[in-house]
Design a protein around this nucleic acid. Sequence first.
DNA 1: CATGAATGAGCGTTCATTCAT
DNA 2: TATGAATGAACGCTCATTCAT
Lengths: 206, 206, 206, 206
Amino acid sequence: MRATTRRTKQEIVSEFRCTEILDAARKVFAKKGFADATMDEIAAASGLAKGTLYLYFKSKRDVYLRTLQHGTAELLERVTANMRGVTGVRAKLRANIATRLEYAEDNRDFIKIYLTEFINTTHPASMTKDFRDVQLKLARGLEQVLRDAVEHGEIQQLDVETIAFTIQDMIRSLTTRRVLGASKQDRADDIDILCNFIWKGIGGGD
Amino acid sequence: MRATTRRTKQEIVSEFRCTEILDAARKVFAKKGFADATMDEIAAASGLAKGTLYLYFKSKRDVYLRTLQHGTAELLERVTANMRGVTGVRAKLRANIATRLEYAEDNRDFIKIYLTEFINTTHPASMTKDFRDVQLKLARGLEQVLRDAVEHGEIQQLDVETIAFTIQDMIRSLTTRRVLGASKQDRADDIDILCNFIWKGIGGGD
Amino acid sequence: MRATTRRTKQEIVSEFRCTEILDAARKVFAKKGFADATMDEIAAASGLAKGTLYLYFKSKRDVYLRTLQHGTAELLERVTANMRGVTGVRAKLRANIATRLEYAEDNRDFIKIYLTEFINTTHPASMTKDFRDVQLKLARGLEQVLRDAVEHGEIQQLDVETIAFTIQDMIRSLTTRRVLGASKQDRADDIDILCNFIWKGIGGGD
Amino acid sequence: MRATTRRTKQEIVSEFRCTEILDAARKVFAKKGFADATMDEIAAASGLAKGTLYLYFKSKRDVYLRTLQHGTAELLERVTANMRGVTGVRAKLRANIATRLEYAEDNRDFIKIYLTEFINTTHPASMTKDFRDVQLKLARGLEQVLRDAVEHGEIQQLDVETIAFTIQDMIRSLTTRRVLGASKQDRADDIDILCNFIWKGIGGGD
DNA sequence: CATGAATGAGCGTTCATTCAT
DNA sequence: TATGAATGAACGCTCATTCAT
């Protein structure tokens, strides 16, 4: 029992350090991007010595990846939960959009990294399995909603997979615009517009 | 007159060199991204000495920016021309989408850079005025079409600016998906689906 | 008395720890050499925490030096004892050679360190007094044998000091060859060959 | 022809830089050993910027290896030439010894590196093929001399290979002693003693 | 006494940029 | 104009050593 307690303590400290570092890293990566961020900066930002970072992460890339992972996992979790919390296709769609926008605005640093990584996928070394999985799971979530709606006759027959990805992208686009500050409207308005747009796009009746 | 001729010759050579370098740079940046590309590689790819690059461009960043500029200008030009070439809102929308997809698939190297840069805008040093202008002009093009359509009663009243950006993003998203190879369908099919989706989204009648 | 007992116990434990560490260090230094060995490895190999090493040794270099010392002292002891155990110049010479070869083959890890250090003497920081002393004592042992032999007319007049060192080196050379695996013969044969060679070299009659 | 000249000029400069660097490296490696030498020191010693070293050598290890190579090649060449220049077993043996001693004393920096490397062979990463080859060639040179001597009845039958290596080692030992300053005698005297010793050892008549 | 997390100086290597030719 | 050798600042990562527990 003593051992357990001790271990737990250590684990808590260890987790705490990880979090400290990831929080710092998130800020630095958001500001500078992966290539221009330095371990020195991350160390300084986390109030730890550079060497300490390497006790918790095996490389700069590792810090980056885990930064990404941490956020994407949380995002997926929230979106999934909020979609479950409501019923009806339109409500689920709205929940998806709203949750993502909200998360993005609450975690601007993270979302910048997320968006960058999303595009960088193009480059071989990039997108980790974890990241890709989250993308896929988010898309599958929408896809399932669309499929159900089609089956229940709520919306017309359509290519659910393509549309799911397209909707995914539209949400990401709106997120980008809002995070980059290009949209001056209320969040609720932006959500409404997009929601309506999509709803009409997929042929949902009023 | 002799002087003029000479000067012209020089200018031609100079332009030619620039183009050589930009073509090479496009390939290298597309493959490696800005940070991982090296001036050595670009020099090698362009068949010139490294020092020569600095006669035509003042820094690596400058090469990058002009690479971007060159492509975006061309893209804007083609889209504008092709939209002018047809009449009717739906046809113009379709022309916009088709031209952009076509350009992207014909200039994959460039488009990867373009997409990356688009997101990187987030980072301070990034998106140049030129680049931003092109984005804006493309969006304004769509906006004008929408505005006209609303005025002519072809489509219902809507927030044209937001919708224009949203459409812009949807096109970019489809481009990304196709360039990254995630879409296995015919280009024409993808264009149809998106076009219909948008058309319904903006409440256009059939 | 209680104090004494306790102290003794502590000393025993202390000595035990030292030995544990030195045994581990011997393996690690043998495998990696001084520069490439890490305190982490030595700690892991000795089953102790890294910090603990510093309770018994004041630096990595100190561990290394004592590793060396420990072995050389033992070697010197055995050689001296075995030479005393026999009579006659040739027998003593043979005993010296045989003991050293045997020790080397029984303590390959140590001997690799020993041989490396021997050469590294060249570098300022290196060869400690202890190590040098052992070398000297081994040489003096041979020198004395030679001196006696000359006095008793067993071998001709010669520069005993130089010859002593030369013999020393020849033995070390044979050791090296055998430890590095370059000699495929029986140890006894190698000993014979070297012994005869030296014997003739110093003009000993049969 | 112009091209040829130019190329030659470039090659000359390039070779000169290499030599500059190797000369500097030789000094630094001799003083500090491989592990403790830094590229900064070598750069400073060669009067070049650190980055320049990497134009001519691909890594610190590469500099080291080529330092070694350069010297061993030269040593082998001289020994071979000088042995050819005389006739008779004893003379050849003496030429071998004398040349090696002389070279060592003229190139103390190099020889320290050489000796260190020789022992470090023990460690996996070590002795390159080039270095091993030179060792082997030197030994083969002695072996051939011994073999001839045996055939001509100048010396008695013996295990030429083992003896060749032993002699090799004795010479190296003497070199070590002289370079480390442990021998206070005239070089000629040392050569005589060793030569006589070996001669008697291999049973050569006077 | 024992631990192992934390430290930070130090090093090998890269690469954008310059400049003498 | 074109070259490419030279530069040196910058960075990721390691590891001997310390010290609070």
